[in-house]
Amino acid sequence: MSRVHDMGGRWGDGPVLVDPNEPVFKEDWHGRALAVTLAAGALGQWNLDTSRHAREALGTKDYTRFSYYEKWISALADLLVAKGVVSREELATGRSAGGSPLAEKKLLAERVPAVLAKGGPSARDGAAPIYPVGARVKTRRPARNVWVEGGHTRLPAYASGVEGVILSQHRAHVLPDANAHGKGECPEPLYTVLFRAADLWGRAENAGDEVTLDLWESYLEPVA
């Protein structure tokens, strides 16, 4: 049911390779890729959840083959065309067919510090949480988007259909499953849910080991 990005628990990836002298941006184009993505986002044609979904929606082979910033740029190109910001032809030729009505929203250099510092909080006013701290809950199975078939969700497959305990309650937060697909923010109470590693993986490295996830209320059902 899930996509290639949903890789928590997967076997076969080999050791974690660490470059102790890695600069912030390994190549100049990495910084450009990050910056052009943020600047394009400031045009306001999509939200964080849309752009996350665009990266996840890359083909399985591309997602696996692409480096991190290649994913960003490919997803950005897809979004720019999907939202009509640039045409497919402009993207293919690299030549502008004319100005854009969105130009007035262009992020100017002098506004960059303020825009980055402002961020985009996802907490909203909304319903009070129904699950108290300590309540036993079970996650949705399968880990699917119930709004859009094959759509974006933040419930990883490895934590689907598993029992856990509410560790803490947060305010209502924008629901990615709806917001990624233009269906509104639909804020829901968010919880940090604690799982025993043994319940997720069948066996844990040590008996007391645990995993937490941040999950929206509709991902959960009560356990008697």
């Binding site: 912030v24 941006f25 184009w29 910084g31 450009r32 890729a33 990050l34 910056a35 052009v36 943020l38 600047a39 394009a40 045009l43 910033y69 740029i73 950005l76 190109a77 720019l80 910001v85 640039v86 402009e90 993207l91 690299g94 030549r95 502008s96 004319g98 100005g99 854009s100 969105l102 130009a103 262009k106 992020l107 100017l108 250099a109 506004r111 960059v112 510090p113 980055l116």
Partner: peptide, 30 residues
Amino acid sequence: MRVKALETLLTEKGLVDPAALDAIIDIYQN
């Protein structure tokens, strides 16, 4: 390079200010 092409296209369309990209990179780099 694909990024450069995209940056150039968006700049020509008036959607991206290259100086803003420099500013973003500077903040996260320095």
